[in-house]
């Protein structure tokens, strides 16, 4: 079973009387435990696709299955609970809660998932150590650098041990060296925790680390590269 499967998914934005198709006929399986990058130019539908996979937006057509469950028909509360347990998010602007310390930001999803206090403490300590921020545990986001904030965001995304982590342009707001460090960190943690990571990015550094790359243009998948046993399978053309 794939962590994410999309069947004939379509999404249309309505701007007044004008309908703008954002995604059309997307059929895609995200493989378990791999680094998948959704690549394409601005406005191609990367973020929309990521939002649909992350269950924070709903398709106008087709079916989306995440962790084996059809998600588009779920009631809002059920979908919130589902996200809390199964999906982690990393945002371009880090999106840490400014009034919470690094420790508390990482702990917050565990509270939402109703994890007990002792286990929470254990997991947060481990994640702080894994991202190298033990000494910054009591710092507020405003007291952290961009790279440190994104490390906190990565730890937060992995806190509930989700099967799927989604990252929207995670290196876009970082300098290249920090971006490389963050990618390396995500790659390491993805392997250690056997999580499926899905990125939207046109950062070559991210592409270089990817197992699978989904090429998207004008809301349609135009190519797919999959690394299998050191070989690259290429389906469709690339823009």
């Amino acid at each position: 079973m794939h962590p994410v499967s999309l069947y004939n998914v379509g999404k249309v934005y309505r701007l007044g009387a004008v309908e703008v198709p954002a995604l059309s006929d997307i059929t895609l399986d995200i493989r378990r435990g791999v680094f998948t990058v959704i690549s394409g130019p601005s406005g191609s539908g990367k973020t929309t696709l990521l939002n649909l996979i992350g269950c924070i937006d709903t398709p106008d057509q087709g079916e989306i299955r995440v962790a084996g469950q059809t998600v588009q028909a779920m009631p809002d509360d059920a979908l919130s609970d589902f996200r809390a347990h199964h999906i982690g998010f990393i945002f371009q602007s880090f999106n840490l809660i400014p009034v919470l310390t690094a420790y508390e930001n990482i702990e917050y999803p565990l509270r939402l998932a109703k994890v007990g206090a002792a286990e929470r403490r254990q997991r947060v300590e481990a994640l702080l150590e894994a991202v190298g921020l033990e000494s910054r545990r009591n710092n507020l986001p405003a007291q952290l650098s961009g790279g440190q904030r994104q490390r906190v965001a990565i730890a937060r995304a992995l806190a509930t041990a989700p099967g799927l982590v989604l990252a929207d342009e995670p290196t876009a707001n970082l300098d290249s060296q920090t971006g490389a460090e963050i990618i390396a960190l995500m790659r390491r943690m993805q392997r250690e925790q056997d999580v499926s990571f899905v990125f939207s990015s046109h950062d070559p550094q991210v592409h270089a680390e990817a197992d699978d790359v989904v090429f998207i243009r004008d809301g349609r998948i135009v190519g797919l590269e999959r690394q299998r046993n050191g070989q690259t399978d290429v389906q469709g053309g690339r823009s």
Binding site: G54, I56, D76, S80, R83, N95, I97
Partner: peptide, 16 residues
Amino acid sequence: TAEIGTLRAMGLRRSG
């Protein structure tokens, strides 16, 4: 607003 979106994405319900 962005913070609200983040909390909701992380799984906080509307009632939360």
